[in-house]
Simulated scan of single mutants.
Amino acid sequence: MTVASKLDNRREIELAEGVHIHLRPAGLFPRLMARFIDGAIWLLIFIVLSVVLSLSGWLIGDEASQGFLMLLAFVMVWFYDPFFEASKASATPGKMAMKLKVVRRSGAPVGFASGFLRCLLFWIDFLPALGTVGMVSILASRNSQRLGDMVADTLVVYRSPPRVPEVESINAPAVRPGVLLQREEQLAFIEFADRLDRLSPARQNEITAPLAALEAARKSPTTTSFALGVARWLSHQEK
């Protein structure tokens, strides 16, 4: 293993389409900063609601106010992270501020079940010695995973925009795919166009052959030209 490969923390993921995407796991410091921001948000919410409830305690009663705060604490502890990480942003406000997101190890979005599992195990990472277990795990793991990430099969990665080839470099007219493409599928088309010159014609046909089942692909001369057309169309959308 070269020095460069040790310093490069990108992880190459091969998709079913035969192309590769790169994920860059976040290290300890940005994750600590994201947690600090989320903690500040928690504290601000509790301070504001405590003041509001104390002022309205005479109306709803002190016991009701205390019960509401306990319920809020329960929801924040167990559902704050899973709610935001299972959303379209795939990140809590703190992670969004640090340009991070949580994904499956395959690069796919995190569902609520996986988000809840990693949240549940956060307390195992955190409670012994104020997070020492989690920090040591992140530093020792090749993918910067704490124990919760390892069990839930998730990664915290940098939110890097996909590198889109220049429209002019794709030698094919733009073609609408005719179906709704997930983000991973969009990346697959873009990556295919980006490395076309490094693929033999036989390999190009092998990779794009499954696209023949799409109705829109039947209107193109070949599945390869269809894939390039979709990549060019996606390039227009990214501009």
Rank of each mutant, 00 (worst) to 15 (best):
Pro161Val: 09
Ile190Met: 15
Phe189Met: 03
Val179Asp: 06
Ser54Trp: 14
Arg118Cys: 06
Pro201Met: 09
Gly178Asn: 07
Lys95Pro: 05
Val179Thr: 06
Ile13Met: 00
Trp42Leu: 08
Ser235Thr: 15
Phe29Leu: 14
Leu120Ser: 13
Ser56Asn: 13
Gly67Ser: 04
Arg218Ser: 14
Ser90Phe: 05
Pro177His: 10
Asp125Leu: 00
Lys6Met: 10
Pro210Lys: 09
Met98Thr: 01
Val19Gln: 11
Ser160Thr: 14
Leu127Pro: 00
Ile207His: 08
Val164Asp: 03
Glu185Lys: 12
Gly94Thr: 01
Phe189Leu: 04
Pro210Phe: 11
Arg159Leu: 12
Gly94Tyr: 09
Val48Asn: 05
Ala108His: 14
Arg142Pro: 03
Arg183Ser: 11
Leu199Val: 07
Phe74Met: 11
Ile45Cys: 12
Leu71Asn: 07
His22Asp: 06
Ile21His: 04
Leu100Val: 09
Ile207Gly: 04
Ser220Met: 11
His236Cys: 05
Ala86Asp: 01
Asp153Met: 08
Phe79Gly: 06
Ser106Met: 01
Phe29Ser: 08
Met135Lys: 01
Thr2Ser: 13
Gln204His: 07
Trp123Gln: 02
Lys99Cys: 05
Leu130His: 09
Ala227Gly: 08
Ile190Gly: 06
Met135Tyr: 04
Ser144Ile: 01
Val102Gln: 00
Leu121Val: 13
Ala73Met: 14
Phe83Asp: 00
Ala113Arg: 14
Phe112Gly: 07
Ser160Tyr: 09
Leu23Cys: 00
Leu32Asn: 07
Lys88Tyr: 02
Gln66Arg: 11
Phe74Gly: 10
Val103Gly: 05
Gly18Ala: 10
Met70Tyr: 13
Pro221Gly: 07
Glu14Ser: 12
Gly111Cys: 08
Trp78Asp: 02
Val164Glu: 07
Asp153Trp: 02
Ile37Ser: 07
Val156Lys: 00
Ile207Asp: 05
Leu15Ala: 02
Ala97Gly: 03
Phe46Ser: 12
Thr222Lys: 10
Thr208Pro: 05
Arg11Leu: 10
Glu191Asn: 15
Lys99Gln: 14
Gly61Glu: 12
Ala227Met: 08
Ser144Val: 01
Gly27Thr: 00
Met150Trp: 00
Pro128Met: 03
Glu184Cys: 00
Thr223Leu: 07
Leu72Val: 12
Val167Arg: 13
Cys119Thr: 15
Ser50Gly: 15
Pro201Phe: 12
Val175Thr: 14
Ala40Asn: 11
Val102His: 00
Leu59Pro: 03
Asp194His: 08
Leu196Glu: 13
Val77Ile: 13
Gly27Tyr: 03
Asn171Tyr: 07
Glu85His: 04
Ala64Gly: 04
Met96Lys: 13
Ala91Cys: 02
Ile170Thr: 04
Ser169Cys: 02
Gln182Ser: 15
Asn9Tyr: 04
Leu43Lys: 03
Asn143His: 15
Arg24Val: 10
Glu185Leu: 05
Ala129Val: 13
Leu23Gly: 01
Asp194Leu: 13
Leu7Trp: 10
Phe68Lys: 03
Gly18Leu: 10
Ala174Met: 11
Phe46Arg: 03
Ser106Glu: 04
Phe36Cys: 10
Phe116Asp: 07
Thr224Glu: 15
Arg218Asn: 13
Leu127Tyr: 03
Ala202Lys: 12
Trp233Leu: 01
Val136Leu: 15
Ser106Tyr: 02
Pro109Ile: 02
Asp62Leu: 11
His22Phe: 12
Leu228His: 06
Cys119Asp: 09
Ala217Ser: 14
Ala213Cys: 09
Leu211Thr: 04
His236Ile: 11
Ile41Pro: 02
Gln182Trp: 11
Glu63Arg: 13
